[in-house]
Amino acid sequence: MGTAVSIELADDRPGPELRALIDDVCRWLHEVDARFSTYKEDSEVSRMRRGELTLADCSDDLRHVLNACADLWRDTDGYFDAYAGGPLDPSGYVKGWSVEVASARLAAAGSVNHYINAGGDIRMRGHHPDGGPWRVGIRHPWEADKVSWVLALTDGAIATSGTYERGHHVINPRTGQPARGLRSVTVVGPDLTLADAYATAALAMGEAGLTWLAKLATDGYDSAVVTDDGRAFSSANLPAAV
């Protein structure tokens, strides 16, 4: 994935136990990278691209990923598209999903207080070591060392998609042209895979994404958006820290 992952465990447990939990998460993330990377010739995704692997004989995980991408394509009016760039590229789903799974594995192993941040997409549970909720900043879209919102969460996910780092790289699948209009889209909700996909889809939609994001609020997904011309928007129930 070429992404740095930060993991913080805030459970009051012996050091070696915590290290073993982190090792397990790292093992899983490396496994995902080996199996789903489009940059690795022998990954399942690369083999499927070349036609060496069919839906019938691929792994359960890959089948899950492909089905989820299809569901999201439908739920986002086609704006989340694993084929937007041509051949299959489920990376936009796999990143959030792998972290969602990693956090669930930690929880199953008894870690109730942690966060995992994979390239700005965060899944958290429980509390900060100081006993309060996790405070998460949303990067200011023009000032890299500042944040534009601070959110407080105990259990949930935050994903941000933006054009400020790699330029207008997100393709609007309807036009085939780079998406324009929104500079930064953050979606907050219970599940990181959905939050991440929704943020990417809204970025692809451009300004129309604002209206689309507003409808997600009833499903428990709040959002914070900055447009190319610097206007900021947030949904009513965004869990902003006081």
Binding site: G2, R139, H140, K146, T160, Y164
Partner: peptide, 14 residues
């Protein structure tokens, strides 16, 4: 633009 005390930062870092 604020410099707040946060545990993590969400942003587009690829």
């Amino acid at each position: 633009a604020q410099s707040a005390k946060v545990a993590a930062v969400s942003g587009a870092t690829y």
